[in-house]
């Protein structure tokens, strides 16, 4: 027997061992295999080796969720790659859109902020002092007994004087240059 023939026979024999252990031989093939097994140490060795490995793999608990194993056809991999690329493209588009929107509606500059603060403070100081009945606390204190029960409130309009805020903002502007 040539080396090639021997290799071929050996390969067939090993495949037969697998088929036997996985119970995929016909009844006749199985009986023939067992008859040969009774008389061949080499076959017994081969069967023992295959059984040992299959048993070990079975007990190793691989459930097919290995990082490499995948039962799906190859085109689904391409789909996954496309999905990743689409996600990346979407992220880039969103980032670009956000930046573009920011350019179209720039944030107010420091001077503008200061002006807005001045207007807001002036509005609050004028309107709320006039409208708020607590602003006339002193007259209320004289005429109303119920106010004795109220929380002590500074009678001055300091709490409503927000000029300090304007000054602080202006000072901040100066410090920042």
């Amino acid at each position: 027997m040539t080396t090639d023939q021997h290799f071929h026979t050996d390969e067939l024999s090993r495949n037969e061992c697998l088929l036997y252990l996985f119970d995929e031989l016909s009844d006749e093939q199985q009986q023939a295999f067992e008859s040969r097994l009774e008389n061949s140490d080499a076959m017994a060795d081969q069967l023992a080796r295959a059984a040992d490995l299959i048993g070990n793999v079975a007990m190793s608990g691989i459930d097919g969720k290995s990082s490499h194993s995948n039962d799906s056809p190859p085109w689904s991999k391409q789909r996954r790659v496309a999905a990743v690329l689409l996600t990346l493209a979407g992220s880039l588009a969103l980032t670009f859109l956000f930046n573009w929107t920011s350019l179209q509606n720039p944030k107010p500059t420091g001077n503008e902020q200061l002006q807005i603060a001045e207007v807001w403070v002036a509005t609050i100081t004028n309107d709320e002092v006039q409208e708020d009945p607590l602003a006339n606390l002193e007259s209320f204190a004289v005429t109303s007994v119920s106010l004795d029960m109220a929380d002590p409130i500074d009678s001055s309009t300091d709490g409503l004087d927000l000029g300090w805020m304007v000054e602080a903002i202006a000072q901040g502007e100066n410090n920042e240059g």
């Binding site: 023992a48 295959a50 059984a51 070990n56």
Partner: peptide, 17 residues
């Protein structure tokens, strides 16, 4: 009990060996 059904025959031979 934890041996997959398909590998049970092989497992028996392994134990026997």
């Amino acid at each position: 009990q934890n041996i997959p059904v398909a590998a049970r025959k092989a497992w028996l031979f392994r134990v026997a060996s």
